[in-house]
Nucleic acid binder design. Structure first.
Ligand SMILES: [Mn+2]
Ligand SMILES: [Mn+2]
Ligand SMILES: [Mn+2]
Ligand SMILES: [Mn+2]
Lengths: 228, 228
DNA sequence: TAAAAAAGTTAGCCATGACTAACAAATCAA
DNA sequence: TTGATTTGTTAGTCATGGCTAACTTTTTTA
């Protein structure tokens, strides 16, 4: 038994910090995550993160040495995964049942993920018949907290001639998601890399009889499975 | 135009105070509502309410003179009605779609009512096909903020021989709601008042071939329409 | 290897929204 | 009508979670 109390008394802020740390550590497969990096990710000052990390260490959700890198305990990780489960289930609900577009769901899910009720989220899951992926193609952790972390391959990591399938996209930017839809890309689209331009890393891609040039920043937020 | 900014920037606390004030002023048809009464209702100290009322006055949601009684402005009232709409729509969703019982919905709805998104609540309303009442029989304000405040008649206000129909119940107490279900009462039940006992105001009632004695406190939380 | 830059920490401040204790005003009751 | 009780207000404290400015440690780079 790792959990002492399991009474789920975390504040919204504490939850947000744990989720952010998980996303930096695990989702973005960063080798090490530091205080300032977390601050930048959360758009708060380094002093604020330093403060909160201290608190999360006394609660045994985070481990780190002074001036050292940050790590999550099993319990910290479990909380983060629960948040991600809630976030993605709500996004799926908004998208599939309430006529939200995929660029509208994230902001509301950021609020909904902090609602505290086990029954609520498990019933929502059942109501939707246990969806596997959210509207952006991301896997939804199950009610036992099981979550396969699949290393993500970005479109920007491919080379000329490669062919890939769009698996998921970063859901944090409304403008980015709108642009993805606008040019006609969608989940499962097959994309061929026509050219990678050296001077600015922009990429010329072909999909569904369309040819587009996208920036490196764009391609960093598109996750694919390499086919050829 | 009453609204200056309409930017919906209220904190959870501000919203809770406005809703509580509305419920005391309008729902409980109190003639006057004072600071301490509000404090007791919200289970905070009179100093806290005094403080918050001050703030809500500068924001033009509340009007009162020093040492005087509290009133809501049109804008304050509109915010409260929006919260009640959200609360009751969420309760209805939990009850009708997520297998919550009527004693489980209130606490979760208390959290959900603070989620900020017009689209969310209007789509939820549409998804459920614009329900008129929540699981406790309370009317749900519509998306224009229209809300008929129907003066409530409590079971305790009736006399021996009266016959009434159960219209709605106070949803704030889990134990109370469980007890209502346990004895076999439900919305629309027809109730006959057999006897009102003078010494403790307890009431003997008959409904669905059942006879029960209920306390005054119980009867204060049951709202009815008088038939005979 | 020694500056310079970056990363991390600390101290001290602010806003919010609780609290208690002390006090003032209004209302009630004898 | 006056004293007691209730109601309302104020002052001062605390916890949370932000912030800036100044400082220290670590890492980078010349
Ligand atoms: Mn999201
Ligand atoms: Mn998503
Ligand atoms: Mn309720
Ligand atoms: Mn209700």
């Amino acid at each position: 038994m790792t959990n002492k109390s399991n009474s789920n008394n975390l504040t919204k802020s504490e939850e947000d910090y744990l989720k952010a740390l998980f996303q930096l550590l695990v989702e973005d497969n960063s080798v090490k995550v530091g205080n300032n990096q977390l601050a930048e990710y959360l758009k708060v000052s380094p002093a604020s993160t330093n403060n909160m990390i201290k608190k999360l260490k006394t609660k045994d959700y985070v481990v780190s040495e002074k001036y050292g890198k940050l790590e999550l305990t099993e319990e910290g990780r479990a909380i983060a995964v629960k948040l991600i489960r809630k976030h993605r289930l709500w996004e799926t609900f908004l998208y599939n049942y309430l006529n939200f577009s995929w660029d509208e769901v994230h902001d509301v899910a950021e609020q909904l993920e902090h609602i505290k009720s086990y029954k609520l989220i498990d019933e929502l899951d059942r109501f939707m018949d246990f969806p596997e992926k959210d509207p952006h193609g991301e896997l939804i952790p199950n009610s036992k907290g099981e979550y396969k972390v699949v290393p993500k391959i970005t479109l920007s990591s491919l080379e000329e001639g490669d062919v890939c399938k769009l698996i998921s996209v970063n859901d944090g930017s409304v403008n980015f998601l709108r642009f993805v839809s606008e040019i006609g890309l969608a989940l499962s689209s097959e994309i061929k890399i026509l050219e990678v331009r050296e001077f600015d890393k922009s990429i010329r891609i072909a999909f569904n009889d369309t040819i587009e040039t996208v920036t490196r920043k764009f391609a960093d937020n598109v996750f694919v499975e390499k086919l050829i």
